[in-house]
Design a protein around this nucleic acid. Structure first.
Length: 515
RNA sequence: CGGGAUGUAGCUCAGCUUGGUUAGAGCGCUUGCUUUGGGAGCAAGAGGCCCCCGGUUCGAAUCCGGGCAUCCCGACCA
């Protein structure tokens, strides 16, 4: 059950909160940690911890509409950084942005059988407009393959028109039964790329290029989240796709999060929407299309991968604030001196392209330390009378809490070094965690044991026959699903037996409980 | 859609069993003073259609009926 934590916790409750510390990676000593943790949820309740971090770090809050969230400025700034990182890569690989309408005629969805079957249960439908009932209901887009396919059919006439390489930034609506901030909301923000190609090879190359060079590159280098890349099983692939690929990240509780997907749609949508072209050989052919998307869910992933008992840890490259300056003073004349130094340092750091903010709020320094740690700012710079006297500043890392005194004249260089170091060390820590929680199993008993061990939950890698029946049985019994058939196998063996049915395996697979 | 629970101050909640003047606490907020190198203290304030509709009653946050909403557990989830 959700435990309510308020300021008037009794002593025993606070103590309990520290004891259950095994779930969330922490780099702090237990004794020191206690103070920081008293307002966050018990850490063995990961779901509750997640919800409180989102709210208390000022990322997002509930909205009057069920399942929808209000993204607050601090959370939206992270989204803007994600947008920028992805958009840069999308454009660098030859794509252009455009925009399609929010509404889609109902019959468009129905033209691709698997697509409508997959999305029908979660559609929001508009039946009235301007006070009158519409002749045909409009669907609020759950994704835009159909309306874009309909349009591409006109845009594609000749092989010379190909490829079409377009992307749009948009909001979509999927009426989910169960929602969580950022991870699964009824409305979410994303980018969806939609491309058209002359051949299957071209479409396949596009699909994989996006997965590797756009998605995985961004998520690993900027969000500091290591991912497992691979193909989706048939039951998990996109509704209407020929093949789906994804990258899967491990959260702090050992569950998997699909962090981005890229689909080779084959000719399914081309046939449904008559996207045809006259090829060089004079024959009329159906085109090959792809689609790929990454969403605000990435923010949830970032929180769940890096966060600890003190709150958020935002990787420096996407942190809205990279350095927060906390001024410290007692007397007014001290404040004057400190203010002068802070202003100068702030200006210098900003001029070097560092995102910096000074905190002049009327609170004690200790409050501010905790507050900015909760918000995950990578570096804190303390400036007090002692620092002014010694012409130095005190830098404190969010990830390790390591403190050091740095002379003013080398501050910019040291900050830049530390930001790079934190970025790398956050990725390394996440990778180590994933490796420590990734298990290769040979028997189904071992498989079940791993999925039942909540404290050490993680990814299970094993052989699988590829059969939907085994996949469904495993899911029913353990809640684990095939996350992907990874490109890189962590085994030397060239073949094996299906972990469930014992028949000769066709593939090596990563199983996990998933968000 | 099944099972369970809950709607009282900005937030987290107490009060309801056993109906009775002006409905409470902590946190937050406002003002003042003192504080400030790891979550400050004191004082004075502001803040309520007690989810909605109806019923019982001299009298309803409290009892009864109906409705709505939200949360949790399942099922579902590109």
């Amino acid at each position: 059950m959700a435990k309510k934590t308020t300021g008037n916790n009794d002593q025993s409750k606070s103590t309990d909160a520290v004891v259950g510390a095994d779930q969330i990676p922490s780099h702090t000593a237990a004794g020191q940690e206690k103070r920081f943790v008293e307002d966050l949820a018990d850490k063995d309740d990961f779901a509750q911890w997640y919800f409180e971090v989102v709210r208390k770090a000022d990322m997002a809050e509930d909205s009057p509409v069920r399942g929808c969230m209000i993204i607050k400025p601090y959370g939206y700034a992270v989204w803007e950084a994600i947008q920028q990182g992805l958009d840069t890569r999308i454009k660098a690989t030859g794509h252009q942005n455009l925009y399609f309408p929010l509404f889609i005629p109902m019959n468009f969805l129905q033209r691709e059988a698997q697509h409508v079957e997959g999305f029908a249960p979660e559609l929001a439908v508009v039946t009235h407009g301007g006070g009158e009932e519409l002749a045909e209901p409009l669907v609020v887009r759950p994704t835009s393959e159909t309306i874009i396919g309909h349009t591409y059919a006109r845009w594609v006439q000749s092989y010379r028109d190909l490829p079409l390489l377009y992307n749009q930034w948009a909001n979509v609506v999927r009426w989910e039964k169960r929602t969580r901030p950022f991870l699964r909301t009824s409305e979410f923000l994303w980018q969806e790329g939609h491309t058209v190609h002359r051949t299957e090879e071209d479409a396949e190359a596009e699909t994989l290029m996006i997965l590797h060079e756009v998605y995985a590159d961004f998520v690993e280098k900027e969000l500091a989240i290591p991912v497992v890349r691979g193909r989706k099983s048939d039951s998990e692939k996109f509704a209407g796709a020929l093949r789906s690929y994804s990258m899967e990240a491990m959260m702090g509780d050992g569950k998997a999060l699909q962090a981005g997907t890229s689909h080779n749609l084959g000719q399914n949508f081309a046939k449904a929407f008559e996207i045809q072209f006259l090829d060089a050989d004079g024959t009329r052919k159906y085109a090959w299309t792809t689609s790929w998307g990454a969403s605000t869910r990435l923010i949830g992933g970032m929180i769940m991968v890096h966060g600890d008992a003190s709150g958020l840890k935002i990787p420096p490259k996407v942190a809205p604030i990279q350095v927060v300056i906390v001024p410290i003073w007692r007397k007014d004349e001290e404040r004057v001196l400190v203010e002068e130094t802070v202003t100068t340092l702030e200006r210098t750091l900003r001029a070097s392209g560092i995102r910096v903010k000074s905190d002049w709020r009327d609170n004690k320094p200790g409050f501010k330390f905790s507050d900015w740690e909760l918000r995950g700012v990578p570096l804190r710079l303390e400036i007090g009378p002692k620092d002014v006297q010694n012409t130095q500043g005190t830098l404190v890392r969010r990830d390790t809490r390591a403190k050091e005194s740095v002379p003013w004249n080398s501050m910019v260089a040291r900050v830049q070094d530390l930001l790079a170091e934190i970025q790398q060390s956050m990725f390394d820590a996440a990778l180590r965690f994933r490796q420590s929680r990734t298990y290769q199993v040979a028997t189904y008993d071992e498989f079940k044991m791993r999925m039942a061990d909540r404290a050490n939950l993680g990814f299970v890698e094993t052989w699988w026959c590829g059969g939907a029946a085994c996949e469904a049985e495993i899911k029913a019994q353990t809640q684990a699903t095939v996350r992907c058939l990874p490109f890189e196998r962590s085994t030397d063996a060239s073949s094996g037996q299906c972990v469930y049915c014992g028949q000769p395996a066709t593939t090596w697979a990563v199983f996990a409980k998933a968000y």
